[in-house]
């Protein structure tokens, strides 16, 4: 049996009195894409942030390539360099050009020479359909373009896995397509992914596994057709029914 790229065991996190993650178990194999679904506030973002060590967990462990990364002795910076994170609200650096956004991490964090970094960044931007926009500031781009820059930024360090937090939910509907296309591309290239999403059709298409998060637990997980078409748990059924009623599927 191969070692999963990412594995969560009993991950628990509270903010004050509020228990947000209550013993999460999840494993993600190489080249696998896992979709996290669940109502707003169910803890999808928190789970992803815990994996990237942006939030310190209370209990349990996260393993990256079989090594524990949530032990206090582990170098957090090194772990983050091996993971890519894309935020719901892009979080680009507004004072830097698009190309500097993409190369900052590899230049400062990994000591890649700036010429090589720029070449790499250019190639990535071109792949996202952003050629010629290198010198622009993020606020000169549309939301969809900004999010593609954020994807390129996270991908630039050639991470082992990427964590995508609702990368399309801050976008106008007509801009969603290009960003989803970029994620699809990542999946086709074999990137290991965990992505939180409200887009069930996208989860169905791209994910190998769908995990439904409810009151801090993964209540149901499995192949997209199992979880989305034939959910076993009443809470999953309720969640999907509500989405269906809202025209979200």
């Amino acid at each position: 049996m191969t070692v999963p790229v990412l594995e969560l065991k009993g991950v628990t996190k509270s903010f004050g009195e509020r228990l947000v993650l209550d013993g999460i178990d999840l494993s993600v194999d190489e080249h696998e894409a896992v979709a996290l679904i669940g109502a707003s506030g169910s803890g999808k973002s928190t789970l992803l942030r815990c994996v990237d060590l942006l939030v310190e967990i209370d209990d349990g462990d996260v393993f990256l390539d079989g090594e524990v990364i949530t032990d206090p002795s582990v170098d957090e910076v090194d772990v983050r360099r091996r993971l890519g994170f894309v935020f719901q609200a892009f979080n680009l650096f507004p004072h830097m050009s698009v190309i500097d956004n993409v190369t900052l991490g590899i230049v400062r964090g990994q000591g890649v020479g700036s010429t090589e970094a720029v070449d790499r960044g250019r190639a990535l931007l071109e792949k996202c359909g952003l050629e010629g926009r290198e010198k622009d500031r993020p606020d000169e781009l549309s939301g969809g373009q900004q999010q593609r820059v954020a994807l390129a930024r996270a991908f630039a360090a050639e991470p082992r896995a990427m964590l995508l937090d609702e990368v399309t939910s801050a976008l106008d509907p007509e801009l969603v397509g290009d960003v989803l296309e970029a994620v699809r591309e990542l999946k086709l290239e074999g990137m290991t992914l965990i992505f939180a999403t409200h887009e069930m059709s996208f989860a169905r298409e791209v994910a190998d596994k769908v995990a439904f998060l409810h009151s801090g637990r993964i209540i149901e997980a499995g192949k997209p057709e199992e979880v989305l078409d034939d959910p076993k748990e009443p809470e999953t059924q309720k969640f999907l029914r509500r989405l269906l009623a809202g025209g979200r599927i």
Binding site: R49, D52, L54, E76, V77, R80, R81, L83, G84, F85, F87, A89, N91, L92, F93, L104, G105, I106, R108, G109, Q110, R153, A154, A156, A157
Partner: peptide, 12 residues
Amino acid sequence: TQTDAALAVGLT
């Protein structure tokens, strides 16, 4: 969120 993004790309 700016600090988060900076940490996420691997900065100290």
